[in-house]
Each structure stands twice: as structure tokens, then as C-alpha cells.
Nucleic acid binder design. Structure first.
Length: 461
RNA sequence: GGCGCGUUCGUCUAUCGGCUAGGACAUAGCCCUCUCAAGGCUGAAAGACGGGUUCGAUUCCCGUACGCGCUACCA
């Protein structure tokens, strides 16, 4: 590993970024970052009919969301747009000249020939040994078909070069030193090695990583749950959690630590600890890692991301003091929710008091006649707290004092209070939520339901 | 069919011949508790099968079974 490391991720723009592809990209990226190498993104936009700029953008967005920045590659989805790096073009559709030149080279040297309008490669007739950094030396014997005719198509009769050719030429021209890719390419690697040799160069080092399977062991396709990166963005997973989870599929750190930041992953990741067996996708474990990462998020970022997802869900926070919004969001940080679930959990903070709705089943459980009387007593007690005393600790102490006076358990007061303040029976810590809401909102919301406190009469509207 | 890769708790994994087989998620019970979570404690749970090699195999070799991949003028 004396040469500077150059690795690449070469997705085909199919309209989505597959989770397996994301994991391949991640392993390449981690390897590059760990070794101080270069990570190249190149787009294999061969199928012009299917590859729109929108499809390319899905990949770029997914990569950016995961934090997998590329040192060389396109800056925009436009194949003719700007890019970084001097080994481009980074779109296959703009590399036709490379392939033409290489095909001519092979033909001149008698290693390729025409048959039925296509160009064929004169493949070696012997078994090929594939040295793999993960699987070890793999000796690939010829299959029965290859025994009959080992040659294979380089350029189709319509003039399009096939994957094996473009892949090898691209890696060669771009100076790729390590090819880290899915194990589904292992068998094909014999062809690639033969091609590199035909061009008179040593092939790069190969590392075939095990595939990601569905929970039932079948191969993941784009229709399978959890297969598409865009879904994780929409569901509101923390990207660092997705990265952490994917890193653990087929790899594990020597110290056994599982909850790892991106920086920790970069420090620990290497190919020698990648295992050889396929892994099944487990959404529960991903979710567990998300909760850990969300909890560990720096508050400012948690609030920023939270706001974004609230906005997506139509919860408007703009009319409120930013500090209020931040405090509101922070009461949900410990709750282990996906960002998408935040809107339902903290939406009540941002509703006007008059717009608060309490569903019938919540009323039935928490706002019966007796409970509303209790609520009235509690509300009166809270009236007596001055504004600076409206803290979670004081609200809790006062509620418990009132409960003692009434001879009921705390729960007899907390649930009516929660229902009146939030319209729900589940939510953030009641005392903290009331502190954030503040005396005005708490009094008003409780007032709509409180009975017998002599203040508002307590008749709901 | 041929070629290749794989096989440790339900799942992800640790183990580089000595293991009472460890951890995490999930799961069961208990504790804590204002709801939901979280947290704490405890528990159940694994080496596909059969042969070798070895004083000793989860670890090495062979076979079988099963799973997956490749076998295209798809990528």
C-alpha cells in the first residue's frame, strides 16, 4: 500500500440510491479517508434513455446527506457541468473517446475482433486467480460455457461498449488503486483482470464486500423496505446513524465498540476487518443507533434538524421566539423518535391556545368531571406561582403538594394537565413541557377544561 | 447445469487451536417512573451436518446440505 490510495464509487443513475450502493460508497470513502487517499465519484450514465439529471441528483443528494464528500467528480447533475478533479470526464457518457482508443488498441494487437457486428475480447483460456483483500485468492475455473467459447463482447453491435470494458478502462484512466465493490462482481473480476493485462498494466487491488440481504435472506431490490436511501431521509434518521449502522454490516472494529461517530469510523475502519459473509438488514438496530445518535447530537444541530422536519410536516415555528422553539424541541430529544415523528410529538407547542384540540378518547380518559375539578384546583395553585417560579421543579413540587391535599396520586393530576396542555396522553415530560409553554399558555389551556376553580367556569367551547 | 462465495444466539457480530463461546439490537422478568420513552438489574438464546488432522477443534482440511452471486450484444 505504498501508492497513494485512489478509490471510486461508480453508481448507475437508476432513480434511487440503493442501501447496498450506499454501503459500498461508505466503505470506499472510509478507506480513502482512513488512508488519506482520494475518493472519486463517477457516474455510469450509459443507459441514456433511463438516466435523467433528476436520477443523477438523487445520488448526489444521497451522498451529501450521508456526508460522503468526494474529492473528484461532478459538482452538479449536469454531465456537461462543472466538476472537480483532473481525471475526468466523470460521466461515462462523456468518455466515449477513451473507449474507442482502447478498443482500437486491442484490435491492433489482435486481442479483439469483429463478429456479427460486435467486438469480442480474446479471453484467456485458463483459470484466473483473483487476489482479493477480503476473500483471499480465488481461483476461477472456466465454466462450461466458457470452455466452449471463452471470448466475450466488448462492444455491442449498436456501438455501445459493455460494462466490463468501460469499468476497466475508467479505473485504468482514473488511476484507481483499489476496487472496493459488492461481492456480486467477484466472478466477473476474472474478465477485468484479463482486460487489464491485455492493456499491459497490473490490475488494481480488489476487495469484494459481502452483500446486504433482506431480513428473510433474499436479495434486496429497490422495492424492498429499507432499500432506498431517500426513505431514510424522509423518515428522519440521523445520517450519522445510517452511516454507523451501514459500517457495522460486514465490518466491526477491533475494540467491539458499536456506537461510533463518523470520525471514529474513519480512525478505525480498514479492509482487514471486513468479513466475508452477507448480512441481513435489521431496521430495529438501525433505529436503536438513530436514538443513540440523536441523543448525542449537539443541541444546536438537533434543533436545526428538528425545525427542518417540523417545517416539512407543516408545523410552523416561525411565529415563535427561536429560543422557545429550541426549548420545545429539546424536550423531545431524549425520546428516541425519528425526526419525522417529531411533528406529532411537539406540534402542540406551536398551536394557538384556541386551536388546541383534544380528541374524544383523550377527553374520556383524562378529562372526566372529577378530573376537571382536580384540574381546576391545580390551575388555581399554579396561578399563585410568579412568572420566575414557573420552572419544572416548582411545577412538579406544586403538583405533588396539590395531589397530597386532594388525597390523590400524582397521576390523577398529571394526565388531565397533560391532556389540557397538549391534547394527548403521550408527550414530553409534563413539568418540562409546562415550563416551556409558560404560565400564559398553561393557564389558558387548563382554563378551557378546569372546573370549579372559580376563574373561567371551565366550560369547554 | 457450470463456476465462485458464504454458513457462531431471531439479527449484526467477537473469537486469528485451549471457550464456563463475549458484546450489541430484538426479546422475557423485575426496579425506577407524570405519559411515552429512556435508564438500571436479571434471564432465555448460537458454533448447519458428517468425516478427518491434532493431546485438544467454533477456529485447519475434505465432503454433504442449505443460502447467495455470476454464468447476457444488463450494469
Amino acid at each position: 500500500m505504498s501508492l497513494p490510495v485512489r478509490v471510486r464509487f461508480a453508481p448507475s443513475p437508476t432513480g434511487y440510491l440503493h442501501i447496498g450502493g450506499a454501503r459500498t460508497a461508505l466503505f470506499n470513502w472510509l478507506f480513502a479517508r482512513h488512508h488519506g487517499g482520494t475518493f472519486v465519484l463517477r457516474i455510469e450514465d450509459t443507459d441514456t434513455a433511463r438516466n435523467s439529471q433528476a436520477a443523477i441528483d438523487v445520488i448526489l443528494q444521497g451522498m451529501r446527506w450521508l456526508g460522503l464528500d468526494w474529492d473528484e467528480g461532478p459538482a452538479t447533475p449536469d454531465p456537461d457541468g462543472p466538476s472537480r478533479g483532473d481525471r475526468g470526464p466523470y460521466f461515462q457518457s462523456r468518455r466515449g473517446e477513451w473507449y474507442r482508443r482502447r478498443i482500437a488498441e486491442l484490435r491492433d494487437r489482435g486481442l479483439a475482433y469483429d463478429r456479427d457486428g460486435a467486438v469480442y475480447f480474446r479471453m484467456t483460456r485458463e483459470a484466473v486467480t483473483i487476489p482479493d483483500m477480503i476473500v483471499g485468492d480465488v481461483r476461477r475455473e472456466l465454466t462450461d460455457r466458457e470452455q466452449a467459447d471463452p471470448d466475450w463482447v466488448l462492444v455491442r453491435s449498436d456501438g455501445q461498449p459493455v460494462f466490463h470494458l468501460v469499468n476497466v478502462v475508467d479505473d485504468l484512466e482514473m488511476g484507481i488503486t483499489h476496487v472496493i465493490r459488492g461481492e456480486d462482481h467477484l466472478s466477473n473480476t476474472a474478465k477485468h483482470i484479463a482486460l487489464f493485462r491485455a492493456f499491459g498494466v497490473e490490475p488494481p487491488r480488489y476487495a469484494h464486500i459481502p452483500l446486504i440481504l433482506n431480513p428473510d435472506g433474499s436479495k434486496m431490490s429497490k422495492r424492498d423496505k429499507g432499500a432506498v436511501v431517500t426513505n431514510y431521509i424522509e423518515d428522519g434518521y440521523a445520517p450519522e446513524a445510517v452511516v454507523n449502522y451501514l459500517s457495522l454490516l460486514g465490518w466491526s472494529p477491533a475494540d467491539g465498540k458499536e456506537l461510533l461517530s463518523v470520525a471514529e469510523l474513519v480512525g478505525r475502519f480498514d479492509l482487514d476487518r471486513v468479513n466475508r459473509s452477507p448480512a441481513r438488514f435489521d431496521e430495529k438496530k438501525l433505529a436503536a443507533l438513530h436514538f443513540e445518535h440523536a441523543r448525542a447530537m449537539e443541541p444546536g444541530r438537533f434543533v436545526e434538524v428538528g425545525r427542518e422536519y417540523l417545517a416539512r410536516a407543516g408545523v410552523l415555528t416561525g411565529g415563535h421566539d427561536p429560543a422557545y422553539g429550541a426549548a420545545a424541541l429539546m424536550t423531545a430529544r431524549e425520546k428516541g423518535l425519528l425526526f419525522r415523528e417529531l411533528a406529532a410529538f411537539v406540534g402542540f407547542y406551536f398551536k394557538a391556545d384556541e386551536e388546541m384540540e383534544v380528541p374524544a378518547e383523550v377527553q374520556a380518559k383524562a378529562l372526566g368531571a372529577l378530573q376537571r375539578q382536580h384540574l381546576g384546583v391545580l390551575r388555581s395553585a399554579y396561578e399563585r406561582l410568579d412568572a420566575s417560579g414557573f420552572t419544572a421543579a416548582a411545577l412538579e413540587a406544586e403538583l405533588k403538594r396539590v395531589a397530597g391535599e386532594l388525597g390523590v396520586k400524582a397521576g390523577a393530576l398529571t394526565q388531565p394537565a397533560r391532556a389540557a396542555c397538549t391534547g394527548s396522553l403521550v408527550g414530553p415530560s409534563l413539568y418540562h413541557l409546562m415550563e416551556v409553554l409558560g404560565p400564559g399558555r398553561v393557564r389558558s389551556r387548563m382554563g378551557r377544561w378546569a372546573a370549579g376553580d372559580g376563574v373561567d367556569g371551565g366550560k369547554p367551547t
